[in-house]
Design a binder for these strands. Sequence first.
DNA 1: AAATAATAGTTGTATATTCAACTAATGGAA
DNA 2: TTCCATTAGTTGAATATACAACTATTATTT
Lengths: 149, 149
Amino acid sequence: MENKNSLQFHMNMGKLIGSVHNMITRRFVQNAHEAGLDISLDQWMVLGPIHYHGDASQKLLSDFCFKDKTSITRIVNTLEKKNLVVRVPDQLDQRINRIILTRAGKQLFNDVLPIMTKTKKEVSRNIPETDIEIFKDVLTRIISNLENV
Amino acid sequence: MENKNSLQFHMNMGKLIGSVHNMITRRFVQNAHEAGLDISLDQWMVLGPIHYHGDASQKLLSDFCFKDKTSITRIVNTLEKKNLVVRVPDQLDQRINRIILTRAGKQLFNDVLPIMTKTKKEVSRNIPETDIEIFKDVLTRIISNLENV
DNA sequence: AAATAATAGTTGTATATTCAACTAATGGAA
DNA sequence: TTCCATTAGTTGAATATACAACTATTATTT
């Protein structure tokens, strides 16, 4: 583990991304927990679009979040169990579920916003804004490299 | 979903990193599968250090992979079930498991190396090397921002 | 030497992810 | 209009993650 090869392995991009992803997830949950809020980062990633859209279908959430429809099904299950959202069948197309925030869901959304801001600040501390921009740009390029193949 | 706020949400860093992480994981597994190999990215991330170190403890793997010791326990379980590694109790400290590659494990390691290279190439296609360097640097900085708090 | 603290791993519980296979509803083509 | 393909969502099985609580072993302290 002490030679050059191992260091190179250590710095592998996939591993770095995975580690950072896990760390951000953990930090977000911790910050939320300290504020007395019970929500995971993935639940938040789905709750956000539900809030902005108003009556998103699960398909839309799936596309928007780059998550499998299965994942959306299960996250919406969890949110529904917590009484944060409800599934309402679409009037015109019976295949579609419209996901609607409950009052508690709206409340939680507003409570979590500052947690998100705090987490973002902790994550990007001491990193130049220009590097953050390049960082996001690379992420976006990787997504388009892997998206439709 | 069509206004400025939603776009901003869409471009959220945590979400981007999560999406990219999932996409790379999926692509790696697909590439391995096409080559007739059955291994996940996380299994590979643990198998690599086992190979380089020779007789790594689970604690070392945990530190090295930025994964919880629980995760290591379970990934090693999986690798053991597949007869890729064995747990050997340390002679001096009975608390420690030494994780050793089997012949099949060494074989798989060598078979997977080109898959890793291929995946890396697909991921970083059309992205300038200088941007990749900044990208990795930002990832490393985020890790140190979140590591010991 | 005996009590206590620290370390290495495991197990239980809850959440998240993917793929494949499935149901149900919609839309188009013969 | 009937058959067929597509679309939206669910379910099952396998893998991965974190935290808390646990056992067993080693190290430290009094």
